[in-house]
């Protein structure tokens, strides 16, 4: 249930960006969240209206991209896809692997409505 804290952090950041850009509203927030970030996307989506109520992000769409878990093997040097609880090389079976993607927890971009103050840009 830490998703509400995460949502509040997202709202704080995007509202600051909106203010810096003199935006009227935030239309869309793009997120990239990997399965290894420990964030439940459904819970995040449920918490977002609570965290964003009364802010510039109130009517923003939350678009979450989930990247696959990809690992690189330290033994055979090959890459493979993996499950969160089985980060083992699918080629040689070694568990000495490094994560290439799948642990992201990023705000990638925000779409702002700036039409009334477009001259600031």
């Amino acid at each position: 249930m830490h998703e509400l804290s995460v949502c509040q952090s997202i709202v704080d950041q995007v509202v600051a960006i909106a203010n810096n850009n003199h935006a009227q509203a935030i239309c869309k927030i793009d997120l990239a969240i990997g399965p290894l970030a420990g964030i439940d996307i459904q819970l995040l989506e449920h918490a977002f209206p609570v965290a964003s109520a009364g802010t510039l992000a109130e009517h923003a769409a939350l678009a979450t991209q989930q990247l696959p878990i990809k690992i690189s093997c330290q033994s055979c040097k090959r890459e493979s896809e993996a499950r969160a609880n089985h980060l083992v090389c699918s080629h040689c079976g070694d568990w000495h692997t490094t994560i290439i993607s799948g642990d992201e927890m990023l705000i990638t971009s925000v779409e702002l409505d700036v039409k009334e103050d477009a001259h600031y840009v």
């Binding site: 950041q13 779409e111 409505d113």
Partner: peptide, 12 residues
């Protein structure tokens, strides 16, 4: 009147 801003910040 829409503008997209790159962020690439951690959620936290």
């Amino acid at each position: 009147g829409k503008k997209v801003v790159d962020v690439m910040h951690s959620l936290l």
